[in-house]
């Protein structure tokens, strides 16, 4: 299945802003992160289709996965 992965802030450095990836059925967010080579400790916020999610959550075809390091503001 095909998913869209969006990276933000420091996670973009030496990687990409947005990419489309072919992944196996039954993949989780954790699988995506390990394919891209992101340290799990650098992930503070994870969204599937704009909804906060967990590393162990399964993904579906056409999902958008947004990954953020620790960030804040106001």
């Amino acid at each position: 299945m095909n998913v869209e992965v969006r990276l933000f802030a420091t996670l973009r450095l030496n990687r990409f802003k947005k990419d489309f990836m072919e992944v196996a059925e039954g993949s989780t967010c954790n699988d995506i992160i390990s394919i891209i080579g992101i340290d799990v400790n650098d992930v503070a916020i994870l969204m599937i289709n704009g909804i906060h999610s967990n590393l162990s959550d399964f993904i579906k075809d056409k999902d958008i996965i947004s990954i953020f390091p620790p960030v804040g503001g106001g």
Partner: peptide
């Protein structure tokens, strides 16, 4: 890290 690198606009 987050605030020094990108400021508040990272939001």
């Amino acid at each position: 890290s987050g605030l020094p690198t990108y400021g508040t606009a990272v939001l």
